[in-house]
Amino acid sequence: MSEKKRNLIVFSGAAALLLAAAFFSLRLGSVSLSAAQFWGGMLGKEGYETYTAIFYSSRLPRVLGAVLAGIAFSQAGTLLQRVTDNPLASPSILGINAGAGFAVLLLLVCFPLAYRFLPLAAFAGALIATFLILGVARSAGMSRVVIVLAGVALSALFQAGISFLSVVDPDALASYVDFSVGGLHGVKTDDLIFPAVLILLCLTAGQLLCRKLALFCLGDTLAGSLGVSVKRVRLISLVVAAASAAAAVSFTGLIGFVGLIVPHTARTLVKGNMRGEMCLSPMLGAALLLLADLLARTLFAPTEIPVGVFTALLGVPFFLGLVLRRKRHV
């Protein structure tokens, strides 16, 4: 099969999956909407006020949140795996999760009633952690090994801080658990405006970096000899990845796996083509998070299961299947 034909099938499949996941996420939930209720609610028809309220105040923000977070985590993972040339890189490697977690718990310990500032604390914590790591990495010439090691070390430091704070204030820990398991419960459209702008800016920046990132798989010497300013592109990519993931963490909490497995899946499906990977990865990330969220809120309704459970349950078997299939082909 020619590359063009294969890519057409892959992208059509991903688009169909994304649209289907969004459609069912809007219709299904603790109250499932019939076709008439769905269209009536969406169009704001008379007599369908209840469904309009469900659609616009609950379902739509949740779907938008899942799509944005899926895009953000998967693009961040793609960028990080490329610039560190490390298949295990994901947003957590830059200390994003640990930094956000520590900042949220610190806020809950210091100001137990300041719930409305949790997204801001998460965002700030994630970015501060990232900039600390970048500071260390820059002084070592932006070496990819140093980035990974600094990320692991500072993550451990923030984790130690989280452990310390949870012993100091067990009540704050109870509130922190919600954030640490992640999810899209209670997301409002207003909460999404700032993250959406940032995530879309990062998505654009990622697409612009695409051509240069493609050369990182050749190593620093060859990428540089082909016209890539290696240190600068690495630094910009890390900042874009961190900002993107931090924006998502601010309204979803800590959702794992998406940034790790989606980039691999996309890369395998487009056979290493960088532009294809950068386009497919956000689509698959959004679809995965939509499906995971749909299962999380419908499977044991009205009890909601943490969405991270389903990103792993859906993503990991598919991912392992691809890895094994690829291994057989090699």
């Binding site: 050749l218 010497t221 540089g224 016209g227 056979k271 290493g272």
Partner: peptide
């Protein structure tokens, strides 16, 4: 700049990478 330098200097390093990409690409 890196790009202008790349139009003037090409290198074949001793240690070569193994990218998961088609040789033609």
């Amino acid at each position: 700049s890196a790009r202008e330098r790349a139009k003037r200097i090409g290198i074949l390093p001793q240690i070569l990478p193994s990218p998961d990409l088609a040789a033609e690409e």
